[in-house]
Amino acid sequence: MTAVVQAEGLTKYYGRRRGLEDLTLDIQPGEIFGYLGPNGAGKTTTIRLLLDVIRPTRGLVRVLGGDPRDPAIRSRIGYLPGELALEGRERAGEYLRFLGRIRGGVAASRIDELAERFEADLSVQMRKLSKGNKQKIGLIQAFMHEPEFLILDEPTGGLDPLVQQEFLALLREVRKSGRTVLMSSHVLAEVESVSDRVGIVRDGRLVAVEDVAALREKAVRRIELHFDAPVPAADFQGLPGVRDLRVEGAGVRCTIDGRPDALVKAAARHTVVHLVSAEPDLEEIFLTYYSEEEGHRDRQESA
């Protein structure tokens, strides 16, 4: 089977400013690929290259086995831009029907069904839509023609939690029907529940591609434990994976690198009254996951 996305040495410079450097990536059919990185890391640059909005400085990109410059290839893609601009007096429903016609015809019932799921009001003029409602229109237009490949740039921005749930449900349906998704985010929690693999991009470079399960094991978690009585610090010192340990009376704070098993077993010897496990954020993953690589590079540079 041909890969849905094939990028080789894909590089984009905006003048002298680097947008993306030497991206090599394959995304397989049926996969949900989470594309993670802080703002300005090169996520949107990659996505725009995949859709022929911008052209590579060098390198090769193939989407669905062809050149994204070919309109026939683009007709098989659904796209939600990161900063979706909708304006004018036109009503959202009219605009969706226009997009549907250009994409080769979308049944009105399909648009209505999606609008109902997202609770979007299609009779509103586009310039009067709030950010969240614009995002709903953007999602409807990306999903409505049931494309083989969905490219979603920061899809959950501005959505309220209920609509986010509906969006994730829709994504699972897409995966079930064997279609492919590339979605970008700067929050790991947003993509990890639905993604099969995650790519992490930083400073224009793809620094890692991991299975979500593997990434979660490597992720750092901040853990806070409260006991009914002060606990001896010695019980928690030197546990595998436990770092930044602070024991203060009945409270223990630390970060966990990988499995929390040893910490849980150590804590189980006392009475736990309260436990907080903070979701790892991307920054922390960067700090730990890549500190090694960084250190390595620093040493090479100083040598």
């Binding site: 309109p71 900063e83 979706l84």
Partner: peptide, 12 residues
């Protein structure tokens, strides 16, 4: 205004 980005990704 940013509305062109979606338009150029259409199959046209």
């Amino acid at each position: 205004s940013g509305t062109l980005e979606l338009v150029v990704t259409l199959p046209v």
